[in-house]
Design a protein around this nucleic acid. Structure first.
Lengths: 214, 214
DNA sequence: CTTCCTTGGGGAGTGCCACTGTCCAAGCAT
DNA sequence: ATGCTTGGACAGTGGCACTCCCCAAGGAAG
């Protein structure tokens, strides 16, 4: 298929596809002659994945390129490829280690991990972006005068753990290793908008149950 | 306190505070004379809230202004003020009603709401941004060939509902109505980074439990 | 064969957004 | 009085995700 058809079937404007090609998010088509290139179903699939990451997952273009590099790298083990996808996701600014609120938040989060018995996560605290962004968020609450301690966080963490179990159970229903990897990476990125939307819907539902529409 | 001190105590650069003042995110200080203005603790608190929304919550400046307008509007009822905060949050692009995947996703989500008995949420489908962004995310999955039906979504929705119950329970521990409103709005915005981080941490924990570090 | 339209490539430009640098006149401190 | 600081205004700046425009090569129509 030509560029025009690729554009039509994916719904992505031609100029944007050219941009993705230039940025290395999409492999070049098979060159038929100097001025014609041929694209196949695999290109279409990859293009849709890129679009989903950028538009639904709000992943920056540079990060998409990085994530796709891991997807295509057969030399990596499974945990590494999963980790590569999640760790490349958008991050909040680095926590300022000297800030007193950040230090307090760190202790709070560490206490939480102890309380939950998340030994593996504890070992990753120095490098995990998820740990760092949690610290930043908790510190922001504390700065505003809201104690957001391990005892309040724990029930949330428990629920999120169950969510992660669902994620991995779903992933394991896929038969082939390659498909599992793609689903996991896709899931790590696209699940979050789904969860966020469900959370907001649930808040609307629960708020109106308690207080009505007014 | 002067601008310089406000900057120092909040950690926000002076130029940025000036920008927020211009954008109407922060009330002007009490004018002492033509070239001096005085700020108080309330300004500091508001500034920290603005910063948290922008940096941790990734809320656009225009949206922050809108949300703060609702926070300060005493004429609104509680549910409206809560809704105003959540509905102003960043959105994915509008779903394209003509797209077949979007239509299928809509039916899927409607079936889910029926199955869960979320009657109130169902009544809001035409206007709720959360509903629309859920549809967009589910449609993106379907376009990539992954069925993401009500039966798979339901357990996630159940967990998110419990999360929302925790949110509102926490909110109700605050004694005054004004404080509850502020906490709810703040929570709606800052809770999401917390949840997202916990989710990723839980995924890391669960992945390494199942597959080790490799 | 010639004219005209289409195609893919590539660089430059656009629009948005969150800042940030510069300037200026008025205060204040010494 | 002199020089530093302050608050206000406005014009950049930089990053990012596109998007426009032009070009030369093919192919189609007459």
């Amino acid at each position: 298929m030509r560029l025009a058809e690729l554009s039509e079937r994916s719904g992505v404007p031609i100029a944007t596809i050219k941009y993705y090609l230039r940025e290395g998010l999409l492999a070049p088509g098979r060159q038929i002659n100097a001025r014609t290139a041929e694209y196949d179903e695999e290109h279409l699939r990859r293009l849709r994945l890129v679009r989903a990451m950028i538009q639904v997952g709000r992943v920056p273009v540079a990060t998409v390129r990085e994530v796709l590099g891991h997807v295509d790298d057969d030399s990596l083990g499974r945990a590494i490829r999963l980790g590569a996808a999640m760790w490349a996701l958008p991050q909040v600014p680095e926590p300022d280690e000297d800030d007193e609120y950040v230090q307090a938040a760190q202790q709070e989060v560490n206490a939480l991990l102890d309380q939950l018995g998340w030994e593996n996560a504890k070992r990753l605290t120095t490098i995990s972006p998820a740990y760092r962004s949690l610290v930043v968020a908790v510190a922001a609450f504390r700065r505003l005068g809201y104690g957001w301690g391990a005892e309040l966080l724990a029930p949330y963490a428990e629920l999120m753990h169950r969510t992660a179990v669902l994620d991995l159970d779903n992933m394991e229903t896929h038969p082939s290793e390659a498909e599992r990897i793609e689903f996991a990476i896709l899931g790590a990125i696209l699940n979050e908008p789904v969860l966020q939307s469900l959370h907001r819907l649930a808040q609307e539902e629960e708020t109106t149950r308690r207080y009505g529409f007014e």
